[in-house]
Amino acid sequence: MPEIADPRDRLIVALDVPGVAEAEALIERIGDAATFYKIGYRLAYAGGLALAERLAAGGKKVFLDLKLHDIGNTVEEGVRSASALGATFLTVHAYPQTMRAAVRGRRAGLKILAVTVLTSYDDADAAEAGYSLPVADLVARRADQAAEIGIDGLVCSAAEAGAVRGIVGPDRLIVTPGIRPAGAEAGDQKRVMTPGQARAAGIDHVVVGRPITGAADPRAVARAIVAEMG
């Protein structure tokens, strides 16, 4: 697996909050317990891209979870623009045309992560969406395509991480959402693991949102997750 010098970098805190002020207050409360933050749709559309640039300039790592998927030229130019923000990770959906365009638009310092199948999906959801393959097989197919295209890493559930590692090899990143500390509610995630289980499965980075953002002491929860993965 890729070398990660600071164990805190294994935890990516999802800033799933309504605005920049709330995000900055949460980051302040977490302090030095975390170094890596995820900005998704909700915050990105409320000033989060400017926040991403400030965080990166201040030495934090930023994961732009924008899940790009569009015609090739639009994806390529979007990735090129995102590279200028100083983010570390950017997600695209793992469709071959989209992944190829993202690789073309990638600039030094930005790693492209391909989202295989959303962790809120199970086999019934995939069938309803028109896929004939069960989730595990669909994840495997997309991981194989991502490796061939040259994507930097994969986003998948921890349940599929072992199979994905076997497909993409030791040098690509595996990033896992749907992580819940022991005793936490799964929420709308259908394929979840604890941080310790995820680390044992060979995951490089875990994404944790509500168990931290909704905690009375988010710094303590962040520290506990890092320690559990240690």
Rank of each mutant, 00 (worst) to 15 (best):
D204F: 08
L133S: 09
A227F: 00
V168A: 09
R54Q: 12
G196M: 09
I203M: 05
D6N: 15
V207G: 03
A215H: 03
V226R: 00
D152T: 13
I4H: 04
K190Q: 10
A159E: 12
S81R: 14
V155Q: 02
I39N: 07
T119Y: 08
G169V: 11
G48R: 08
G86D: 11
D65G: 07
I27R: 04
R199H: 10
V103M: 12
L118Q: 06
G105F: 04
E53N: 10
S81H: 09
V226G: 00
Q189M: 13
V75T: 07
I151W: 11
R219I: 00
G78V: 02
A82V: 11
K61G: 06
R80A: 06
A127Q: 13
D9T: 13
A126I: 02
A82I: 06
R141N: 04
A200Y: 00
L90G: 10
G230H: 00
A216P: 00
G130V: 01
E3R: 14
G78W: 00
R100S: 08
A140P: 03
R141K: 13
F36W: 08
I174D: 01
P134W: 03
Q197L: 08
D144I: 01
A220P: 00
V103F: 10
V155M: 07
T74Q: 01
R54E: 14
I179S: 06
P211D: 11
G58R: 15
A57W: 05
A44N: 04
A82Q: 02
S157R: 02
V206G: 10
Y37P: 07
I174H: 02
D70I: 01
K190D: 08
T194Y: 12
G78A: 05
G230E: 09
A126E: 01
L64E: 02
V206A: 11
A216D: 14
I212V: 14
T194Q: 08
A33T: 07
G40K: 08
M229V: 00
R180T: 04
A101S: 15
L68N: 02
A200G: 14
D137K: 15
Y41T: 12
A147Y: 03
I167Y: 12
D123S: 11
G166C: 10
T194L: 12
D217A: 13
V192N: 08
A108T: 14
A222K: 01
D123P: 08
T176N: 07
G183T: 05
L43S: 08
V208H: 07
P177Q: 09
G130S: 06
V17W: 06
A5D: 14
I174C: 07
G47Q: 04
V117Q: 10
D65L: 07
T176W: 05
